[in-house]
Amino acid sequence: MAELVQEHGAQHGSTGISNIKLGMWLFLGSECLLFGGLISTYMLYRGRVGEGPTPMQVFDIPFTSVSSFVLLMSSLTMVLAVSAAAKADDRSTVLWLTVTALLGATFVGGQVYEFTAFYNEGLGFSTSLFASSFYVLTGFHGVHVTVGIIMLFALVAMVRRNRIPGSKSETVEMIGLYWHFVDIVWIVIFTLIYLIPV
């Protein structure tokens, strides 16, 4: 049986590093280039407001800083979920995953609110270059968070139905890495876009 467990554990290469973790870090390395491109497009066009509203006219710093707190706390709960999974304690893994997903959903809810508010204040998608690049950057990040939330909720269902092939703790850890990456991208976005006025 031991050999069976090993087989269904993480496929380790000859160097003892887990394949999927190395794959995940490579993927995160290339995602830096993707978000780097979007952030530099925004930095290039943040001054081009044309006839539309300027950044500081529409940004609501208190609200956005609260959403940054929320995403930071969701990173904490994610780490707790990963360490619970490492200890094979299914109950708290499921609990912390659900809390992380709910906090993520709150963050995205806040963003949907922010976009609707900006739209009503006159910042349409094609109003100005600032608008287009802001919506694409934060929209891309929002989509990544939403995908993360769906993965978290689905992971909760899969853990309860015991449907996860391979090692359960490693799957939770991979989704954890993805979630933390989305959080550190928001750390960079929050500082460069919201806090540094043009």
Binding site: G37, S132, V136
Partner: peptide, 24 residues
């Protein structure tokens, strides 16, 4: 690994400009 994301950004900007009215 590191070049593909850059053209993905460029192609997204072009697609948003062509189909969804962005002004990039």
């Amino acid at each position: 690994l590191f070049a593909m994301p850059v053209i993905t950004v460029a192609l997204f900007l072009l697609m948003f400009q062509r189909n969804f009215g962005a002004t990039f």
